[in-house]
Amino acid sequence: MAETATPASQAAAQPSVWRIALRNRSVFWGGLLLVIIALIAVFGAVFTVDPIAINPIARLKPPGDFGLFGTDQLGRDVFSRVVNGARISLTVGAAVAVISIAIGLFLGLVAGYFRYMDAVIMRVMDGLMSIPAILLAIALISLSGATLLTVITAIVIPEIPRVVRLVRSVVLTVREEPYVEAAIAAGTRTWLIMLRHVLPNTIAPLIVQATYVCGSAMLTEAILGFLGAGIPPEIPSWGNIMSEGRTFFQLTPWIIFFPGAALAVTVLAVNIVGDGLRDSLDPRIARTMR
């Protein structure tokens, strides 16, 4: 007599990662906010003036007649500059997330699966982790010149160890699973086991980690700009706007507050999405992360 599986109350396949994720309220609202910010960043040029146009007669004006967010010491429109900065911030955040996850995933898989590589990779990661990220970035940028590319590289490097550790811990857990051993016993080649049985388990935690990396990269980029060690000062990134606003802070605090608020809201949206993803995708691994 043939038994069939428990009938259709569960869907035939497991629902996709994205389907689960969007059911979560934080993911939905955070994601919506993020989409709006991204749209503003992309289409900002339509409703703003030139962010680097100088206007000597309208310097340090408060929000109101001379623009929604006022003007800075060179008479540039702060609103236009802030809108423009969104594009830079999001670019840095996304680029750092993608690059550091890609590198970290590769190194983590190698370290987790090949014993002889583990010690070497992990000592290097330990070393990298012990160098304070901001100092490392400052040093790298001051040595190789401030461009968007070096800023991204300088932020990527200290993010890699965390990704490697995460991936490695997933690999170490999964490789002990009986279904992986069954695949070994079935003669499946090592790289196929990695691809088929190990890699899929890293996706959910990596998506979550990517959001956190993205958020922290945007903060680091702003901090570097603020300290005068980031993207070249003529580019209106949020960090640079705030850096220039320091001098006149007591007089015109809005030059710092508006880009600061924009940055905080953007990072908050990213982090809320991250928390939501964490809760919905992988409640177990999630708890021990970060």
Partner: peptide, 26 residues
């Protein structure tokens, strides 16, 4: 607590510094 914590991760240190200076000092 969770909201505070997600907020704490999102506000850049120096912006927070200036906000505090502005309110508590100035």
């Amino acid at each position: 607590v969770m909201l505070f914590s997600v907020g704490g991760f999102s506000v850049p240190v120096f912006v927070l510094g200036y906000v505090l200076i502005y309110i508590l000092s100035l």
